[in-house]
Design a protein around this nucleic acid. Structure first.
Lengths: 225, 225
DNA sequence: CGCTTCCCGATTGTATACGAAACATGTCCA
DNA sequence: TGGACATGTTTCGTATACAATCGGGAAGCG
């Protein structure tokens, strides 16, 4: 089928994007043979890719049962945003100190692409870009280690949004990213940090994290869970 | 050979402990067949385990070259401690608010074991326990997500210490951990946070992070790097 | 009619086999 | 004598084959 120059990394990356864009819903079973046929590779490489995603908590590996797109619990959702609130504001501060013209331009292009996708009705892609914007900030801060953590947290946030997002209509038109870019451009570290903090809080409070289990589609699933 | 009930997780865990205890030096080649023979499993499961460790940056996977125990760069060392300084003080604060009698007792036992290992001359084990102490703190804070990050950072710190530690003699007799336990016991969140912050700073400043490359064992290695 | 039990199918876990890439060595030529 | 090329060997990357395990469904029983 597809070219066989692809390694397990590529499989993992493509699945990750599909999850970010909400084309794969939480709980979806990822059959090894099926995925292998789709990408034109053998189960060996598919398994390797799935394990990568499992380490990032994007898929859940159940022994002798297979791989499923992860369904973060309410507890996990809170923890993810707690972690983000520890890492990202300080990272935004660092980014404000380091951002040059090239970085600012890149960020503006990123946001433009996001708005474009939104206008085209491609909500999934818009959501994905909205998430990777945070990765870009971390990259500008030149903290590879922290950037990696943030990338993982952003990925997991995408799953959390898929499960617990309430006001879908008001999707991301908050222009919070624009404000952040302005703060970075003017090198205002305090402002950048504060904006990032409130942006994350906004995101967090827009979730419906009542104790209800993550919408059990069926009774059976709820019982076997 | 060992029992075959072992999965890839077990292989990864055992290798990780060996690395933590400095029984496997940075740069050591981990031949798949060799490791497989040692643990009595096939290359398939060894590869899975090595990939796990690679995701934690404990081993480095070079395409068509094999797996090597990671050799963190100076840059990476700085980043790791930067990340720890963002995560751990706040986590210690949380732990101070939640720690009960059972948790305190567990921590004391942990430190006791550490001193015991040190007295027995088992420096590697002492170092390992000294690291996992931080994991325990994170566990008490009941932040699984952050705890996982910290666990990874502690692991990587172990490698960094192996490469850049200067005053080996003064190993950990700082009693910083004892002071931390006292703060947790009395529920003094501010004190716990401050102690953790200074403890990490102590660790960081005791490293020799000059720009020199991580001690190239041989000229060849330096050139091929 | 509902519950339990057992067996079979499907899917994963592990081992092995084969092809490919990289390093080392040895030879040939300038 | 020194360097460059060719070849051999080792080790990894991927595919395939076999074995173990779990879930579901049909049959049997209360």
């Amino acid at each position: 089928m597809a070219r066989q120059v692809t390694g397990s990394d590529e499989v993992a990356a493509k699945l990750a994007v599909a999850i970010h864009e909400h084309r794969l819903a939480p709980g979806t079973k990822l059959n090894e043979d099926e995925v292998g046929d789709i990408f034109g590779v053998s189960r060996t490489v598919v398994r390797a890719g799935l394990q990568q995603l499992a380490h990032q908590h994007l898929v859940e590996l159940k022994r002798n049962r297979g791989a499923f797109v992860a369904k973060p619990s309410v507890r996990e959702a809170r923890e993810v945003f707690e972690a983000r609130s520890l890492l990202e504001p300080t990272t935004a501060r660092s980014a404000a100190k380091r951002a040059g013209k090239a970085e600012i331009a890149s960020l503006r292009a990123h946001v433009a692409a996001e708005h474009e996708a939104l206008a085209a009705g491609d909500d999934g892609r818009a959501l994905h870009l909205s998430g990777t914007f945070h990765n870009e900030i971390a990259r500008i801060a030149k903290q590879e280690t922290i950037a990696e953590f943030i990338a993982q947290l952003v990925s997991r946030s995408s799953l959390i949004i898929a499960l617990y997002w309430e006001r879908r209509a008001a999707i991301c038109e908050s222009h919070a990213h624009d404000a952040l870019i302005r703060a970075l451009e003017s090198g205002d570290a305090d402002e950048a940090e504060a904006l990032m903090k409130s942006h994350l809080l906004d995101l967090y409070t827009s979730l419906d994290l009542r104790d209800a289990p993550p919408q059990p589609k069926s009774l059976k699933e709820a019982l076997n869970g």
